[in-house]
Computed example of a mutant assay.
Amino acid sequence: MTPAQIRLRFAGGLRFFLAARHRRSGAAYVPYDGTSTLGHVVQSLGVPLTEVGPLTVHGPREEGAGRQVDPAYRPQEAETADVGVAPRPQSVEGPWPPRFLLDVHLGALARRLRLVGLDAAYGNDASDDRLVAHADDERRLLLTQDRGLLLRRALWLGAYVRGARPDAQLLDVLDRFAPPLTPWTRCMACNGTLEAVEKAEVEPLLPPGTRRTYDTFMRCRSCARLYWRGAHSGRLESLVERAYEAAASRPPGAPDPSHGTEPA
C-alpha cells in the first residue's frame, strides 16, 4: 500500500533551506502520518517557521486560490501546501523599536546595527542555550545564520540573516524589519547609549593630534568610550547614508524611519 503523502511547494526565497534535491523545483512530496501539524512538516524539511509567511492549502480536487491556514493546521492526505516567505517589512510583536540579539558569528553586523542606533546585544562566547535564554528573557529578536537555532521550539522569535558580508547583512535586517534609525546614538563597542561631553572634561584623555583637531565629542554612558568624527567617519557616514537610502526605498505603506539627530 502506498503511504499517505502531502506535497509542499516553497516560495523562491525559501528554497536555499531545502535539501539539494528539492531546491530547483521548490517542491517536495512528504510521507504524512495524519497527525503532524503543517508547521512541523515544514520544519522537518529544514525551513524555520521564522522565515515562513502565508500558508495556503489546496485539496486534490480544489481549484482556485486555496485556503489560508496557520502552522497548527493538520493536512489531509494528498493536499498541497504552498509555503510563502515572510513578508517585508515584517511586523514584530513585543518591544518597539525591536531589540536584537546576535549570535557569535555576527559581531560585525552588531556594530553596524549600533551605528544606526539600534539596540543590538552581542557576545562572542555565548552558547546556543544561553542565546535562546537571553533572547527569551529580554524579548530580543535573535539574528543568526544558524537555522538550527531558529528551529528550537524554546526560541520566542528569530530571523535568518541573508548576505555574506556585514554591509549586505545590515541592509537585509533594515529591509525586513523597517526599524527607526537614530544614528550616532549608541556605542559600537558595548551597545550603551551616547551622550555629548564637553571637550574640557575629556581633554586629558585625548591623543595630542585629536586634542588639536577636534572639538565635539560623545561618551558612552556604560563603558565611557569616547567618540569623535575622525578620519574613519567618512566610511561610517557612508554606511549610515546607505541605510537611509534603503529605508527611503521601501514601498508605499511601509513604516517610515524616524531620522535621529546627529551630534553637533
Rank of each mutant, 00 (worst) to 15 (best):
S222N: 12
A11G: 14
E198C: 07
G39R: 00
A11K: 05
T50V: 13
L151D: 11
E237H: 11
T216P: 01
S238V: 07
N191I: 06
G53A: 09
F217M: 05
A247W: 08
W156A: 14
A20K: 15
G148M: 11
V202D: 01
A65M: 11
R153H: 13
L102V: 10
R153Y: 07
L141F: 03
G260W: 02
E262F: 10
Y73E: 04
E195C: 10
G66T: 03
L115S: 08
D137G: 12
Y160S: 00
D215W: 07
T37R: 12
P257N: 09
A231R: 15
L143V: 08
L205I: 02
P97E: 08
G26R: 02
A81M: 07
T50P: 07
Q169H: 07
E241H: 13
A164P: 06
L106Y: 02
R130D: 14
A168E: 15
S249T: 13
W156V: 12
W96C: 09
A120K: 05
T50D: 07
A20F: 06
L14Y: 01
Q5C: 13
A248M: 15
R23H: 06
G117F: 04
G46E: 01
T216W: 09
P31K: 10
T144Q: 12
E245P: 03
Y73M: 05
Q5T: 13
L101P: 00
T144R: 04
E63G: 10
L155G: 02
A133F: 02
R9H: 10
R23F: 06
P98I: 04
D70V: 07
A164N: 12
T144H: 04
T35G: 15
G13R: 11
P71I: 08
R74G: 09
P3R: 14
A72G: 12
V47L: 01
Q43R: 12
S91W: 12
L18E: 11
L150D: 01
D146T: 05
P3M: 12
W156G: 04
L174A: 10
V52F: 04
E198H: 11
P263V: 01
W96I: 03
R176W: 09
A135S: 15
R186V: 01
L102A: 10
M218I: 01
P166D: 05
R88F: 13
R15W: 05
Y32T: 06
R221C: 14
R88C: 11
E195S: 14
G163K: 05
V30E: 09
V161N: 11
G53L: 03
T193Y: 03
L8I: 05
Q76R: 15
M188L: 15
A120H: 00
